[in-house]
Amino acid sequence: MLAPMKIVALGLLCFAGTAPAQIEVLPVQGNIYMVSGAGANITLQLGEQGVLVVDTGDAAKSDAVIAEIRKLSKKPLRYVINTSVHTDHTGGNEAFSREGGTSTVVNIVNTPGASVSNDIQILGNEAVLDRMSASVNGKPARPSLAWPTDTFFDDPKELYFNGESLQILHQPSAITDGDSLVYFRRSDVVSTGDIFMTTGYPPIDLENGGGIQGVLDGLNHILDLTIPAHHEEGGTMVIPGHGRICDEADVIEYRDMMTIIRDRIWASMQKGMTVEQIKASRPTMDYDGLYDVSRADADKLVETVYKSLAGKK
């Protein structure tokens, strides 16, 4: 069952907490770059065949992001992969579609009146399309130009582009029900979406199918993909949903933290404590300072995890 009314507030659910930033492009590894300062981090893969991006950031920053990409490559925009439906990850989908696709809209053979853009494809889990196309007051939650043009159910979705194989790995019931990890196998980079970030707690969205166990499964899945180089440093690099470029050791810290917080809240629930009593016990207190989160945001995480563990929305 969809929850279309919630989609408009998706951007607000993210308590990433970063200060407004200039758009910055940093090389990561191989032919992968990270764009920050435009909402969620955007991953770029550049090559002879064109430009592939993972997530498109905030709508308001799209023109600036595309301008930065154009400084690095004049090749066509060919693929967008969405790691989540949240607007800080998909807000630029329309702009990328216009930039990459509208000039070559062609008729679909045997489907009179229908058309498809064949220049840029937007890939996402089926749930992303479901959420974006769900009816809100008689209209789709998001304009059709923002929708995935190619969805997948099975794990993994595979793609070969710019001389590199990619795996798009659906992570069920994590931040939402449509989350994906994207693994660039040759460059050895994982783009994680908001399952992992360095600027805040994961913005678990229960209304859109997320849950704490899915986030933990996702973090452990990332650790399965990453292989560190010498003494637990480097090797597979990780682009988080928000924050700095990372490697496996940073994901371990985050996985440990979220597991410990989950375990504390669960233990309190087993003692019969109410959610308000658990909030008062401050089970995130030793981590709140890492992200400068307010008490209200810490309480929000506790409540979300509590509801998730209790099987409530």
């Binding site: 700095r244 470029i245 990372c246």
Partner: peptide, 24 residues
């Protein structure tokens, strides 16, 4: 200990962006 090589830059270069990787 852990075979670490550390570089102390003496040429006046700035510290990197906050978005750059952190290391041991």
């Amino acid at each position: 200990t852990y075979e670490q090589t550390r570089t102390i830059w003496m040429d006046g270069r700035p510290h990197p962006s906050a978005n750059a990787p952190h290391t041991w």
